[in-house]
Computed example of a mutant assay.
Amino acid sequence: MSQPLHVVLGASGAAGREVVKALKERNEEVRAASRSKEFEDIETVPADLRYLAQAEESVSGADYVYLCAGLPYDTKVWEKEWPLIMNNVITACEKTEARLIFLDNIYMYGPPPLRLPFSEEHPQKPSSRKGKVRKKIADALMLAHRTGRVRAVIGRSADFYGPGVEKSILYISFLERMLKNKNPQFIGKDPKLSRTFAYTPDIGRALRTLALDEDTYGKVWHLPVSEPVTMVNAAAEFNRVLGTDRKVKTIPRKMFSAAGAFSSDLREVKEMLYQYDHPYIMSTAQFHARFPDFQAVTFREGAREMAHSFMEEKAITAK
């Protein structure tokens, strides 16, 4: 009997590459689908999931398909392209009879402030357009499961951090600035509010775990997170590794709003500021009840590995 084939869509992204690593650790047969990167030791295929033919080609013969793809952080792009991508991937998986494992985020929960710690059962009345998109595509996938088109499972993740993760608030506003001898900046109201983060190697292992358990399908699962930390804690952990003493500076909301008039990136972040104005702690009780032996990395260890990855890349030595 041939070995099951696992296809990772968006394999070159922060989470996708960790799914690839987690599968290789178990010696699974893996195919990487990516628009931008070639993997030397496994089959790699180009895939633009906006096109059904490419989606079908990328998952041909697959037994398990992990949808870890990302899009530019642009609301109009999300509204146009995410429903198209989800429909194409569902159709492709239906054709090849592959199980579909979707890496989701937590934007659909609302209204803010959320009930803490928020679980998979939290009301879904998103206050943002991006959150409405995420709810729409997750609902479409669960409908496809209920109607028998595909066997699907959703893993929802908190904000990423980890080795080489550049699209993270902990890199863009914190670590990157600290490596340049600048103070970290926080876009919320209070850097002493607690929140949970998801370590990307944990996400890779968790998605593999969900995929290989038949009883997880048809459900939504919150993926493992760190213990709750404040942004002051986060800066302290990076300071510990770098041998520095940088303090968190809060960006005044008026200044943020003014800068948004000139920066599309800041305008896109503005509707998501509610995540930083209140504690934002995700419950993973359901996942750990099902998989009690799964150990998530502590924030201290994760921050250290993240910092070392960028220090190595930039040839910086800790003081």
Rank of each mutant, 00 (worst) to 15 (best):
P252K: 08
F39S: 07
S58N: 12
W78F: 15
V19R: 04
H6I: 00
R205M: 00
G70L: 10
T216A: 11
W221K: 10
D265N: 05
Q295N: 04
R134Q: 14
P4A: 02
V19N: 02
F262K: 09
M306Y: 02
G148C: 05
G10R: 12
Y274P: 07
R26I: 02
H6S: 10
A318F: 04
F256Q: 02
V89P: 02
E81N: 07
T91L: 12
E121G: 06
F256V: 02
K24S: 07
D213N: 14
M1Q: 05
A285T: 10
L23V: 04
H6N: 09
N181V: 06
T96D: 04
A15S: 03
E28H: 14
R26T: 12
M231E: 08
E79F: 11
M178W: 07
A315P: 00
V220M: 12
E56P: 01
N239V: 06
T44F: 06
H145F: 10
D74N: 14
I106Y: 09
D74V: 15
G243P: 01
I187T: 03
H122Q: 15
A289M: 00
D63K: 09
K132S: 12
D202Y: 10
T298P: 02
A296F: 12
H122I: 05
P201F: 13
R151W: 04
E38F: 13
A315W: 11
I85Y: 08
L212Q: 07
V232S: 08
L84E: 10
N27K: 14
A62C: 06
E120K: 14
F174S: 00
D74F: 08
D213F: 05
S283N: 09
I42D: 02
F310H: 06
D159R: 02
V232A: 04
V220A: 10
P113L: 14
S168N: 09
P117H: 11
E121M: 11
G243F: 03
D63F: 05
V220W: 06
W221Q: 07
K125S: 07
V65N: 03
T147G: 00
A211D: 10
S119P: 05
Q3H: 10
K270Q: 13
W82A: 13
A92N: 11
E94S: 11
K136F: 09
V165E: 02
D104A: 15
P72V: 08
K21E: 14
R304F: 01
V65D: 01
K136P: 00
L143S: 11
K219V: 04
P201G: 06
N233L: 00
E28K: 15
A62W: 14
L100C: 00
R195M: 10
K219A: 12
R177K: 10
M178D: 05
F102H: 15
V248P: 02
A259L: 14
W221T: 04
D245E: 07
D48A: 07
E120G: 12
L223Y: 00
G13R: 01
D104G: 15
P228W: 09
R208K: 14
D202R: 11
S127Q: 13
Q286N: 13
P228R: 08
Q295Y: 03
Y109E: 08
Q3T: 09
V220Y: 13
A138D: 14
L242S: 02
Y73T: 05
A307N: 10
D104E: 15
F287Q: 01
F299N: 07
M142Y: 11
E237S: 08
E94K: 15
R246F: 13
L67R: 04
